Amino acid sequence: MPTKISIGNEKINSRDPFLGKALVKSNGYRNYLLKFQSLIALLILCLVIGLLSDKFFTAANAWNVMRQISVNICISVGMTLVVLTAGIDLSVGSVLALCGAITAGLLKSGIEVPAFDLYIGFTLLGAILAGITIGSLLGAFNGWTITRFNVPPFVATLAMLTIARGLTMLWTKGFPISGLGENFSYLGTGWFLGIPLPVWISGLIVFAAIIITNKTRVGRYIYAIGGNESASKLSGININKIKILVYAIAGGLAAIGGLIVTSRLDSAQPNAGFSYELDAIAAVVIGGTSLSGGRGSILGTVQGAIIIGVLNNGLVLLNVSPFWQQVVKGLVILLAVIIDKSNAKNE
Rank of each mutant, 00 (worst) to 15 (best):
M1K: 10
T3M: 06
K4M: 07
K4H: 03
I5V: 11
I12Y: 11
F18Y: 09
L23Y: 06
Y29L: 01
N31T: 00
N31E: 09
Y32A: 09
K35P: 00
I40C: 01
L43Y: 02
I44F: 09
L45A: 08
I49P: 02
G50V: 09
L52C: 11
D54F: 09
K55V: 06
F57L: 13
T58C: 09
A60E: 15
N61D: 06
V65D: 04
V65Q: 09
S70E: 05
C74Q: 07
I75C: 10
S76T: 07
V83Q: 06
L84D: 05
V92R: 03
V92C: 09
A101K: 02
A101L: 06
I102F: 12
L107T: 04
L107D: 07
P114Q: 05
D117P: 00
L118R: 11
I120H: 10
G121D: 01
L124C: 12
G126E: 06
A127E: 05
A130I: 10
G131R: 02
I134C: 14
G135P: 04
L137N: 05
A140G: 15
W144R: 02
T145V: 13
I146G: 01
R148D: 04
A156L: 07
T157D: 01
L158P: 01
M160D: 01
L161V: 00
T168M: 09
T168R: 08
L170N: 01
L170C: 01
F175M: 13
I177G: 04
G179N: 08
N183S: 15
N183K: 15
F184M: 12
F184G: 08
Y186V: 06
Y186S: 10
T189H: 12
G190L: 12
L193R: 14
P198C: 14
V199C: 07
I201L: 13
I210G: 04
I211A: 15
I212L: 15
N214P: 01
T216V: 12
R220W: 06
Y221R: 03
Y221H: 10
Y221C: 01
Y223D: 07
Y223H: 15
N228P: 05
E229S: 13
S235T: 09
N240P: 04
K241C: 04
L245D: 00
L245W: 05
A255T: 03
A255M: 03
R264G: 02
R264D: 04
L265A: 10
A268H: 11
A272Q: 05
G273N: 03
Y276G: 00
I286C: 01
G288T: 03
G288Y: 01
S290L: 13
G294K: 12
R295M: 13
R295C: 00
R295L: 14
G296A: 15
G296N: 12
L299D: 02
Q303W: 13
I306L: 14
I308H: 06
G309M: 09
L311I: 03
N312W: 05
N313A: 10
N313S: 13
L315A: 03
V316I: 14
L318Y: 11
S321E: 07
P322S: 08
P322E: 02
F323Y: 15
Q325E: 14
Q326P: 01
Q326V: 04
V327S: 13
G330Q: 08
G330S: 04
L335W: 07
V337N: 04
I338P: 01
D340W: 00
N346T: 11
